[in-house]
Amino acid sequence: MPHIKKTIMAVAVTLTACTGTLGAFTAPALADPGGASGPGVRAAAIVNADASIVRSKGVTTVRKIATGQYCIRLDADVNAATTVPVATVRWTSAPWDSSIFVRPDGTESCGDSRDVFVGTGTAAGARDTGFHVIVP
């Protein structure tokens, strides 16, 4: 084999080995069911009234625990107790007199300190409504 072919082959083998080694040092992927990007936020999600996730970042699950009551489970590296979550109802599914309430849960309703609780409704009472939530 000519010298140039041997050199090219050695470089190709080295690059392949380096790529495999560097892959072992990458950070583990966080669970993002919806795959959204949100620069400057630790977690964010667009959630339908049935608790299905349209897209998200830093959110592992959303579950509906009662009419108009949702638990948003954040990734393990986000401490819900130290967050200031913000939520708003989705324009597409909310009546004009909609209300939304949000708080870090602290195990009160959702059962885990990694959860953020969101409550939705109207003046008449609890109502299933889609919403957006961010955790800066």
Rank of each mutant, 00 (worst) to 15 (best):
T7R: 01
L15C: 13
T16A: 15
K5V: 13
A123G: 12
G23T: 06
I134H: 01
C18Y: 03
A36F: 09
T26C: 05
V89K: 03
Q69D: 03
V41Q: 13
T120L: 06
H132M: 04
C18W: 11
I100D: 00
G106H: 06
A81V: 08
A76T: 12
A51D: 07
A123F: 14
K6W: 00
A123C: 04
N79I: 10
I72E: 06
V11Y: 00
F131E: 01
D50W: 11
T83Q: 15
A24T: 15
R90G: 04
K5F: 00
L15Q: 01
S113H: 05
V116D: 10
F131S: 04
D77V: 10
T129A: 02
A80N: 04
G23N: 14
G35M: 09
T16N: 00
A123T: 09
V84M: 07
A66Y: 04
T61N: 13
F101S: 14
G35E: 12
T26N: 11
V135A: 03
A31W: 00
G58A: 07
A45N: 08
T107A: 11
I53R: 01
V54S: 12
A94D: 05
P33C: 12
C110K: 05
V118Q: 08
P28E: 15
S113K: 14
A36P: 03
F25D: 03
I65V: 15
D115Q: 07
H3N: 05
T129G: 00
D105L: 09
F131P: 02
R42Y: 11
G68T: 06
T88W: 07
A10M: 07
A51F: 11
A36S: 14
N48T: 07
V118A: 02
A27E: 12
V86D: 12
A43N: 09
I100E: 01
H132D: 04
C18H: 01
A66C: 04
V47Y: 08
R42H: 14
T67R: 08
A29L: 15
S109Y: 11
G125S: 12
T88S: 13
A123D: 06
R90H: 05
A12E: 01
L30G: 14
V11E: 00
Q69P: 00
A51T: 09
G23I: 09
P85T: 08
I53E: 12
A126I: 00
W91Q: 12
A43Q: 10
I8L: 15
A123W: 13
P39E: 11
C110M: 01
T83A: 13
T82K: 15
Y70G: 08
V102S: 06
I100H: 03
V116N: 09
G40D: 13
A27G: 03
D105P: 05
A24N: 11
V118T: 09
C71W: 04
